[in-house]
């Protein structure tokens, strides 16, 4: 196998991984994280309902971006960055909730 062939193959699999499982994971993180930063709306439920209802749209937008961006490295950076930001938002919220529960438990006892 020649060097250019191997580079093309590596690029194909990198794109495949990005547009496939990585984008799906990113869409899932955006859906969960969105429940924490989206406005609640007049009925106090928009933040919970919209990310679930719009999950196919979130996935489709990320998929087509990851698939079509000519610069693969940039696509990785954008999808990775978006995932990381939402991972941090979720992590901070979960830790805060756990600390609050612990404090409430300690106060109760």
């Amino acid at each position: 196998m020649s060097a250019p062939d191997s580079a093309v193959r590596r690029r194909f699999w990198s794109r495949f991984a990005l547009a496939g499982p990585v984008v799906f994971l990113c869409a899932a993180l955006v859906m969960c994280g969105g429940a924490l930063w989206l406005p609640k709306g007049p009925a106090q439920i928009d933040n919970l309902v919209l990310p679930i209802v719009l999950f196919p749209a979130i996935w489709a937008a990320l998929f087509f971006y990851a698939y079509l961006d000519r610069r693969l490295a940039r696509a990785w950076a954008v999808i990775g960055g978006l995932s990381l930001v939402h991972l941090v938002v979720i992590g901070v919220y979960v830790m805060q909730t756990m600390q609050a529960a612990k404090a409430a438990g300690a106060g109760g006892s």
Partner: peptide, 18 residues
Amino acid sequence: SYFSFGSAFGIPAVAMVV
């Protein structure tokens, strides 16, 4: 896809976080 993912994965995932 909303109906499938919503109940199989959307509601459990968001409920897990929030």
